[in-house]
Design a protein around this nucleic acid. Sequence first.
RNA 1: GGCCUCGUGGCGGAGUGGUGACGCAGCGGAUUGCAAAUCCGUGAACCCCGGUUCAAUUCCGGGCGAGGCCUCCA
Length: 447
Amino acid sequence: MTALRLYNTLTRTKEDFVPIDPQNVRMYVCGPTVYDYAHIGNARPAIVFDVLFRLLRHVYGPDHVTYVRNITDIDDKINARALERRGTRNVPILDVVRELTEETYGVYRDDVTALGCLQPSAMPRATENIAPMIAMTKTLIDNGHAYEASGHVLFDVSSKADYGKLSRRSTDDMIAGARVDVAPYKKNPMDFVLWKPSDANTPGWDSPWGRGRPGWHLECSAMIQSTFTGTDTIDIHGGGIDLVFPHHENEIAQSEGAHHEHPLAKVWMHNGFLNVEGEKMSKSLGNFVTINELLADWPGDVLRFNMLRSHYRQPMDWTVAGMRESWNTLEKWYDIVEPIPGTDVGEDLLAALADDLNTPLAIAELHKSRPEELAGGLALLGFSVKPEALKSKKAVDTAAIERAIEARLAARKAKDFKESDRIRDELLAQGIVLKDSPQGTTWEVKK
RNA sequence: GGCCUCGUGGCGGAGUGGUGACGCAGCGGAUUGCAAAUCCGUGAACCCCGGUUCAAUUCCGGGCGAGGCCUCCA
């Protein structure tokens, strides 16, 4: 069996991966907050952890891996959008939330499917896991890890001696560096909310502390508990590096506090950030790219390949030039692989992936591979390996192009090269590139 | 201020205490009416300063530079 090594944020080292139960390897990844279309940065964890999911399935067997990615549908940004969306309609706010999140999630699901991501084993929603959240909050109060204050329930950070172990901060440092206004009802500035009150226009559920809603961090802890039954500790917990603090730190505090200090996860994995053309992506810079709009111009396979050219922990720069290069590489490979239904997975490729998901090295190995291994490797990495999947999505007038090619052929036969070159240039100006071969002339849309 | 990453050829991007991955671009050749595509071949790098070592891009220390987190964020 291939031995996996994974970088663990908790220890800041690469470790041999030893599953708690090889018959059921458990992985949880923080999923999208479904208030708007997902952007290209959101695609990174979806793709990275999909590759890990596929690798784990390859190593331990497809039926022996459980991959859970939640849907965060309780969130103040969602609430604000829902309120706008409701307008003057007389419907419960929770129904509007559901409407909005169903719609947004549907787009997300279609987007990541187009990126070649397998459906996770389970996708729990926060709104469907309120009872476990309330139960966990009660447990934390009973354990002395949480307290009620002004309608809120807060986690008492001072009750957890090792708080800060994932992000490696001491609470003193955090307080010194804090740039947030501290709510007056907090005992300690770092205490975070488990449960907060909701007004009539905000989704809320009845609880022992009144009508309210869970804090964001609690949602994940409770969903992990209710989805992975029969264990307190899962094998892998993943997400973006920005979630290390406070989100994952707080998840650890909650789950361990509620589960007799049993670790929440053995391995914590975090993907690096993504920039667009050398700049941080932001709405104000105007370089905010959604997966959805990208898929209108680029094949999903190309997006996926482009993403995997960088190691998941490295910051990556998303560029159009890189996308073009990715497209060309895949086209070349799909031509080689098309007639070969290979399922071989090369040793070197597997070794690269097994070494903390070294996809750039894996891609280098593919370049050296025999066609059978290339086919198998691409399939393992989640590529469609269908040439038609790489066709440009730009609309073109095929009939007109065919006519122009015929005309050019006639001109060439008549040795009227001035005319034949004119036709070729004209097509090129329209973005159509011609390729002459002994078998005839073919064309493609310029990238 | 605190914590943490990173700095490899024109570009992307691995890796290693000693034989300079891999891809793209470039260059040379084949092919072509000329191109494109394709095929063959090929030059080029390890931020700076110390230290350890027979030997450092690779280890250690310092410097400079870039970035992230500390607030919602993948």
